[in-house]
């Protein structure tokens, strides 16, 4: 026993090194494999407030751009509001309050930190658990999808952006509804890859890709348009290169989407899955 202690003491440099590396690996693994609110990420108070100040300063330079974008969005929303529609026929508008219920609520948030040039990119937003943000909520912007909330602190949250090796979005061709998984190959932040589109679908450049009903995003949120497509040898399905509608480099204001019926749907699906196994 004593010789063991002297051995460790003699080579303490190596063992200290080993200990620290194991600690690092533990942190990496914990952060990647379990989506826990880790301490060491940019939603912790110290680094988040520094990054926020830096983003606040930077924001002044883009105010004009943002104003134009917001004005455009207001105009678009106004055009969708009830006042801008004329009555067609009464029976089409007899909407009574109980036949619709709200499925999604939206919280607007500001991006205080983001990246596009790494393999796994994250955003930090200025809304957190105090504003009702929870893990796994989806994030969109006026132009399209952004990502999914990963960690939440009191006033900030980090978002796993679409530009992340583990993000896969179930999406569909708006034209005929063919569904396929969309992921990012790490090459260019303007493009993503959509797989599993059957060859009988007549694709053309410019076809719109939107989120499908089975994704965690609301249905029919814009993702992008078809840039090119190819049939790899030996495969029966198209691989489509999608030009993303969202410019991840210019993200500033985004909306966090809360699916009010998500828990109910997931609970039900889980129940029937486990029920099926018992039979």
């Amino acid at each position: 026993m004593r010789s063991l202690v002297t051995f460790i003491w003699k080579h303490y440099f190596f063992f200290l090194f080993l200990l620290m590396e194991i600690l690092c690996i533990y942190l990496i693994v914990q952060n990647n494999f379990f989506q826990r609110a880790g301490f060491i990420n940019s939603s912790n108070q110290v680094s988040a407030s520094i990054l926020k100040t830096s983003a606040d300063v930077g924001e002044y330079f883009f105010l004009k751009n943002q104003n134009e974008k917001l004005a455009k969005e207001i105009a678009e929303l106004r055009s969708r509001s009830k006042e801008s529609f004329s009555m067609l026929a009464n029976d089409e508008y007899t909407v009574n309050d109980t036949s619709y219920r709200q499925k999604y609520t939206y919280t607007s948030a500001k991006v205080v930190n983001s990246s596009t040039n790494r393999r796994n990119n994250y955003l930090t937003l200025n809304k957190g658990s105090k504003q009702g943000i929870k893990q796994d909520m989806t994030v969109i912007t006026s132009t399209g999808v952004v990502g999914r909330v990963k960690d939440v602190s009191d006033n900030f949250c980090t978002v796993m952006s679409l530009l992340h090796s583990k993000t896969i979005i179930s999406s569909k061709l708006k034209k005929d509804g063919s569904i396929g998984p969309l992921s990012w190959d790490g090459a260019d932040f303007g493009f993503a890859t959509l797989g599993d589109i059957p060859t009988n679908v007549k694709l053309t450049k410019g076809d719109t890709i939107v989120t499908s009903a089975s994704s965690t995003f609301p249905e029919n949120i814009m993702i992008g348009s078809v840039e090119s497509f190819e049939l790899k040898s030996g495969e029966k399905l198209f691989t489509v290169k999608v030009k993303l509608a969202t410019d991840f480099k210019k993200l500033s204001h985004v909306y966090i989407v809360n699916n009010l019926l998500k828990d109910e749907q997931e609970g039900l699906e889980k129940r029937s899955e486990t029920g099926g196994k018992e039979n």
Binding site: M20, L23, C24, I25, L27, I28, N31, I40, N41, Y122
Partner: peptide, 11 residues
């Protein structure tokens, strides 16, 4: 903490 990479830079 700033790069959201939890331990990679430390390692």
């Amino acid at each position: 903490m700033f790069y959201d990479t939890a331990g990679m830079h430390a390692a």
